[in-house]
Nucleic acid binder design. Structure first.
Length: 989
RNA sequence: GCCUUGGUGGCGGAAUUGGUAGACGCGCUGGAUUCAAAAUCCAGUUCUUUCGGGAGUGUGGGUUCGAUUCCCACCCAAGGUACCA
């Protein structure tokens, strides 16, 4: 057929046969939405499968190509599971409470609810373009009152619970009250009972209401306490440990100081051991499990009590090395330790107080930055060694942390390097209790050393000595074996506006829960979103924020009368509150009677596959496991781990482009030189060779020849959309770019070939680096199917990898070839003829590989497999239904739009989403046998690589025909061929 | 420091329980088609070579007929974590 621009008829035909992805994708996205193709229901006999993405925080910047990576992977898996006959739940929603929306509100005065709404609309539009199989009828938003009603409800459940060590689970607080009424608290074993005064049933029954509430508050799973918190003055809020990085706030990098405040805390420490144990039964990445294990920080040892000389007080220490107790030569308390002021002697008082003041002034950041300096002070007091009765000096030092263990250590300088350093510095005795080891140059931290010089422990190894030491301590009553955890209770209050309000009001200073039937307590309107410097939260600016206990509603603050109307809690919940249980809400998103119905929870159970970033290891993923276990304990959920399998997708990085700007005397010259002029190796030569041109260029913009040698250069980011695949900058577009207003008349010194080159560097994708690639643009230019395939093709799912748009042409031309496979000339053409052996081989090879790939989450290699299949089938000119129909089902999870279009052209009336996954038949792969000679010494051995069972004769035939076998036999004929089960074949020559 | 993961062409990356290293794609080179360009198609592309070969999966050893794969030591990179007693 002759084609030219005048032949309009031929062009029309071309149009019809072309792969018009924009049209196809819009058509099927509309079809899926109208037919609710991906709506999940609980009324089916199919087995369930729950595929979940970590829901996004809808930021103002919209999506870049890095965001959908995990969503594409989970979507492929969800679609694959549907083809396999599973009832798939694949929902999506928004984590829409949080700091950036509020920061934006503070700056612009726009209500966070409005900006959040706008951002969600942008996200939804962008997500819809990529063709995900989400069930949007189940969407949740954490900032929606219908949702946070249940976040508040869960908070009330936590308040109404305590952790019973006897049953090792959270129990209703009413069970605790009835125990108190019968027998006081002396027999109660709760996680929180350390430091709680002992009382009898009589005491309890005589307590006032407020006294009872104060006692109970100490037992609750969420409790109010005066705690030292990480206060960030700039953000005006308290931060959790995981929100602090290197002593500054994770967000914005503002300094953080310690401050005592009345805060809600979550008793996550109660679950420390169960969270460790639970890791063994879930299939999560090892690095993530290790992060959680470290964060929980279990250490096994003993707690030992030391008497203080001339005092009633005892000092409790925690040690992981009770076997070294005879090596104790002093004791160190944290400067903040409660006992310091009581035991300090008159003589030392001044020095100790000065030291405490000095350490209090140092911020946490300073203390961390400077770990080398040894400092401390002697209290003048002495403890008594429980075994030997010797006097032991009590020191204070800031290397001991008040927040870990008991805030006191027994110092064993011969066995602990920090104690050794401290002892050296202050010239304290270092007693050696190790056999044949010198401690003159440093402590002996080797755990294989034998203990010496230690009474009954002498001669024992560490393990035995530890056991005996604990036994002796328990027998003599001054110590016991103990397990300590690094995991602290999580502070749950935030001095912010854009978060869940607490369902709490204060009566006589004690917190009271609002009856759940009056929930939600809706976030009030305020005029100013900014917290005050003293830490009073923005809700303090609300006029209508008091609780009327008669009418059960929120009323104006002026009505507070301290008998029926009381003030409401001013703090809001942290960002992780709403995200700690959302996966359960998807199971039953519009239930108004419960956060999830029993039926729905029993049906869906838990998440089968969860995909998201590893940055949530010690935040969201820890808190979510905690709430899940709690809700399980209280009988609200059927499982105590919420996600069976978890995959961390790697980050997609941007390839930034830099242009080289010339500076003179610290000022911009509004002039740029092509990047290769500044290459380390070529700089001299290329500039020298072009020296006149180089000087001329700068003379033209007003420099003298001598000025030129004083030029300085710096790299600045250029927008990547202005740079082509050969790193050449579109100079005109750069001048006219709205972000480069200063460079409108800029001068450019080009390379010799006339191009202007940039330097490329891989960095995190971010707006400020001008390296963001928008998925909308990719969808427009190449289609969503190309985007999906390319994101997978980029590399292994879990690895970080740079984005390079130029690579997309490969997957795009694959789609065009796939399309052609189903077309002949201008029209759709698939025939019903019987496939050949070769065609079947290609199909079944592909089925096998793709199925393995999906199950191993190696989505990148299956894209290659598709390309090979299409190339082979094109070469075979295969257009047979029996081959092309199953091929389409294989491709459809990856490139659903094109698959759906061709599927409908094949005459199917329903969506390809309901088609079954093709069944692999290995009988078509007979010829994929490989033979390797193993050795030749009288006997000859061969390895056969087979994926199927062959008869002896068939194997012998394959072996004897093989080229290498012929060579090894050197013309001789073997007497017999022995076939050993497995892969080894012996040929006896 | 400790824990974890990884190291393969110019680049992203393949390689099943140890079995022809570099699949597939990008890029590059040459060719076909075209007035031309785009698009498409075909061939080549680890390095080196005296065209016989030789070397080669971070480095050095080891096990094996055979090692990217298993073992030991080391180097490097990324991530997590840290006066945690």
């Amino acid at each position: 057929m002759q084609l030219n621009s005048k032949n309009t008829e031929a062009l029309c035909l071309l149009d019809r046969m072309d792969y018009n992805f924009n049209e196809i994708e819009a058509k099927w996205q509309k079809y899926w939405s109208e037919n609710q193709t991906f709506k999940a229901s609980e009324t089916t006999d199919k087995p369930k499968y729950y595929v979940l993405d970590m829901f996004p925080y809808p930021s103002g910047a919209g999506l870049h190509v890095g965001h959908p990576l995990g969503y594409i992977a989970s979507d492929i898996y969800a679609r694959y599971k549907r083809h396999q006959g599973f009832n798939v739940l694949h929902p999506q929603g928004y984590d829409s409470f949080g700091l950036p929306a509020e920061q934006y509100a503070i700056q612009t005065g726009q209500h966070p609810a409005i900006t959040t709404e706008t951002n969600i609309a942008t996200y939804r539009r962008q997500l819809d373009k990529i063709g995900f199989s989400f069930d949007w009828s189940r969407e949740v938003r954490t900032s929606n009152p219908d949702y946070y009603k249940w976040t508040q409800w869960i908070f009330i459940q936590l308040f109404d619970s305590w952790y019973d060590l006897e049953s090792n689970k959270a129990e209703a607080i009413s069970t605790l009250i009835s125990i108190f009424e019968k027998s006081g608290n002396s027999n109660v074993k709760a996680v929180s009972d350390e430091g709680i005064a002992v009382f009898s049933s009589e005491d309890w029954n005589n307590y006032s209401k407020v006294e009872k509430e104060a006692v109970l508050l100490q037992y609750r799973m969420t409790y109010l306490s005066e705690t030292e918190v990480n206060w960030c003055p700039f953000l005006g809020t308290v931060l959790a440990n995981d929100e602090i990085v290197n002593g500054v706030s994770e967000r914005g990098g503002h300094p953080v100081v310690r401050k005592k405040m009345k805060q809600w805390s979550m008793r996550i420490s109660a679950y420390a051991q169960r969270m460790l144990d639970g890791l063994e039964k879930i299939d999560w990445p090892q690095p993530l499990k290790d992060s959680q294990t470290n964060w929980i920080g279990r250490s096994q040892g003993a707690s030992v009590f030391f008497d203080v000389e001339n005092s009633e007080e005892k000092i409790e220490v925690f040690t992981t090395r009770p076997d070294t107790i005879f090596g104790v030569t002093f004791m160190t308390l944290a400067p903040e330790h409660d006992l310091v002021s009581q035991i300090v002697t008159k003589d030392q008082k001044e020095e100790v107080e000065a030291y405490i003041e000095a350490t209090a002034k140092r911020s946490e950041r300073d203390r961390m930055a400077d770990v080398k300096t040894i400092s401390g002070a002697f209290t003048g007091a002495y403890a008594i060694h429980p075994f030997t009765g010797e006097k032991i000096a009590i020191w204070i030092g800031d290397y001991v942390l008040a927040s870990y263990g008991t805030g006191a250590v027994m110092a064993v300088p011969c066995g602990d390097q920090r104690d050794w350093d401290f002892a050296k510095h202050f010239e304290i005795e270092i007693k050696n209790i190790f056999e044949g080891v010198s401690v003159a140059e440093g402590a002996c931290e080797d755990k294989t050393a034998k203990i010496a010089n230690s009474d009954m422990l002498s001669g024992l190894n560490v393990k035995k000595a530890t056991k005996l030491a604990i036994y002796e301590m328990e027998k003599r009553g001054f110590g016991k074996g103990k397990i300590n955890y690094r995991l602290r209770d999580a502070v749950f209050s935030r001095q912010r506006y854009w978060g869940e309000p607490f369902p709490v009001y204060y009566k006589d200073g004690m917190p009271q829960m609002i009856n759940p039937k009056h929930l939600p307590i809706v976030l009030p309107e305020v005029e100013k979103y900014l917290p005050t410097e003293d830490g009073k939260p923005p809700l303090g600016n609300a006029d209508v924020w008091a609780w009327d206990t008669v009418n059960n509603k929120v009323v104006d603050n002026s009505e507070i009368n301290n008998s029926t109307v009381w003030p409401l809690e001013l703090n809001t919940m942290p960002g992780w509150a709403g995200s700690s249980w959302y996966f359960n809400r998807y199971m039953d998103p519009s239930n108004t009677e419960a956060f999830v119905s029993k039926a729905a929870a029993d049906y869906w159970q838990d998440v089968d596959l969860y995909i998201g970033g590893s940055e949530h290891a010690t935040g969201h993923l820890l808190y979510a496991r905690f709430w899940q276990k709690f809700l399980f304990d209280r009988g609200h959920l059927p499982t105590d781990e919420f996600a069976k399998k978890l995959i961390n997708q790697g980050m997609i990085l941007g390839t930034s482009a830099f242009v080289l700007e010339a500076l003179f005397d610290g000022k911009s010259l509004n002039a740029f030189v092509s990047a290769e002029l500044f290459d380390k190796d070529d700089y001299i030569t290329s500039v020298h060779r072009r020296w006149d041109e180089f000087v001329g260029f700068f003379k033209n913009i007003g420099l003298s020849e001598s000025d030129v040698s004083d030029l300085k250069f710096r790299w600045i980011h250029a927008d990547v959309s202005l740079v082509n695949s050969s790193d050449e900058l579109d100079v005109e577009a750069f001048r006219n770019h709205p972000l480069n207003k200063d460079f409108k008349d800029a001068n450019f010194l080009h390379s010799e070939d006339g191009a202007f080159r940039t330097k490329r560097e891989v960095e995190k994708m971010s707006k400020s680096k001008y390296n963001v690639v928008n998925p909308d643009v990719i969808c427009e230019e190449y289609g969503a199917d190309s985007l999906r395939l390319f994101e997978m093709f980029l590399g292994p799912l879990e690895q970080a990898k740079p984005w390079k748009t130029s690579g997309i042409s490969g997957v795009h031309s694959f789609l065009k070839k796939l399309w052609k496979l189903y077309h002949q000339g201008a029209s759709f053409s698939v025939v019903d003829a019987t496939p050949t052996k070769d065609e079947l081989k290609t199909l079944h090879k592909t089925i096998k590989k793709v199925q393995e790939d999906i199950e191993n989450f190696s989505f990148n290699t299956s894209v290659s497999t598709f390309m090979i299949a299409v190339n082979e089938l094109s070469a075979l000119k295969c257009n047979k239904r029996e081959i092309l129909e199953p091929l389409l089902v294989l491709v459809s999870p990856y490139a659903p739009h094109i698959a759906e279009e061709l599927w409908s052209k094949l005459g199917h009336e329903t969506s390809i989403a309901t088609a079954s996954f093709p069944v692999f038949d290995e009988s078509h792969l007979v010829e994929s046998t490989k033979v390797y000679p193993v050795s030749f010494n009288g006997k000859m051995r061969f390895t056969l690589e087979l994926s199927l069972t062959l008869s002896k004769d068939e194997i012998e035939e394959i072996v004897m025909k093989h080229e290498k076998t012929q060579a090894q036999l050197q013309g001789r004929t073997p007497k017999k061929v022995i076939i050993v089960p497995g892969k080894i074949v012996n040929i006896v020559g």
